[in-house]
Simulated assay, not measured.
Amino acid sequence: MEWGFILAGLFVGIMVGMTGVGGGSLMTPILIFGFSIQPAIAVGTDLLFAAITKSGGIWAYWRHGVVKWNVVMRLAAGSLPATLITLWVMNATGMHEGDHNELITKALGVALILTSSALLLKGWIGRLLRAQEGHPVVNALYSLRQDEGHKALFTIVTGALLGVMVTLSSVGAGALGAVILLFLYPKMKGVEIVATDIAHAVPLTFVAGLGHSAVGTVDWSLLLYLLAGSLPGIVIGSFLGVRISDQILRPLLAIILILIGIKCLL
């Protein structure tokens, strides 16, 4: 079983290294459906797994000065309180006893479908908005991101929604966060969106993971096995990622996530 966990970590690490997404989206379903891990423990362990595997990215991006810390703070102002409230409610209603297994599985299914949709439709949504410029709805959306006060408020609300989703399912901080940032902050470069998204995802997943740990839904030995496989996997994936077209990898990953999400909901 230990080698199975290590190989699972290796596989997910390779996918993260190649595509930049897929950590929580793949690891939690693998633990639940592949190894029959209790959903709450799978989510709690995966949150800390994600925080550790992505933490090196913050340092690298920070050194290059591409993290927009004001945006990170806005997201965190919504996500961290939402995470703590979600954890408190789940703990008060029996999370550590497995009472929320069905809720977590359903939330995971919804999060996976939303994440895969974000991966598949990100470019299409951008082209649609540009093609429909002048439409009242599109104008309202554009005015939202042009007003700094409205943009800040919407970013905080986005952070709160991500906080609830990530705490319940460990999915959503990556692809969904990046798509929303792409719309709200169109002047940000691609690397800045990725860097800012990761800089927010690490403390979010770390706080949510520690919260799960406090109520006993983190398996520390499992976490170590997963990390033993994922850390070299990320290096391998980064090497392969520059040789395989992103236009092939991301749609393939998105289709896999949709299928897993549908399975969670059935």
Rank of each mutant, 00 (worst) to 15 (best):
T217H: 04
A160Q: 07
A107F: 12
A131D: 13
M27N: 06
A8M: 14
P186Q: 10
L257K: 03
K187G: 12
S230K: 04
G190C: 03
L265C: 10
A228H: 08
F239L: 13
A201Q: 05
A42C: 10
D46M: 01
T86S: 15
V171W: 01
T205Q: 10
G177F: 05
A92Q: 15
E102D: 14
S143C: 10
L48H: 05
A173R: 00
G94D: 01
W3K: 08
G134E: 13
L114H: 06
G229M: 04
A42Y: 02
A201R: 02
R243V: 02
I37W: 05
R74I: 03
A82L: 12
L162I: 12
G17W: 02
V66N: 12
I6F: 11
L120E: 12
S238F: 00
G9S: 10
G174Y: 03
T53C: 05
L10Q: 04
V21K: 00
L80Q: 05
G13D: 10
G241F: 00
M90K: 02
L48E: 09
M165Y: 06
L223E: 06
V72R: 07
A208I: 15
V12R: 03
W3T: 13
L204D: 14
L222R: 14
L26H: 04
L210T: 08
G65M: 10
F49T: 01
L114M: 14
I14V: 15
G209W: 07
Y185R: 06
V242E: 14
L80N: 06
Y61R: 02
A76T: 01
V171P: 03
H135C: 08
D197C: 12
A140L: 11
G229K: 03
I262L: 15
S230F: 08
V191K: 09
E148P: 01
V72C: 12
T53F: 03
G34W: 09
V71E: 13
G123K: 06
S55E: 06
F154H: 04
L87Y: 09
A178I: 07
I113G: 00
V89T: 13
F154G: 09
M18V: 07
E133N: 08
I193E: 03
V67E: 08
E2F: 12
V67M: 07
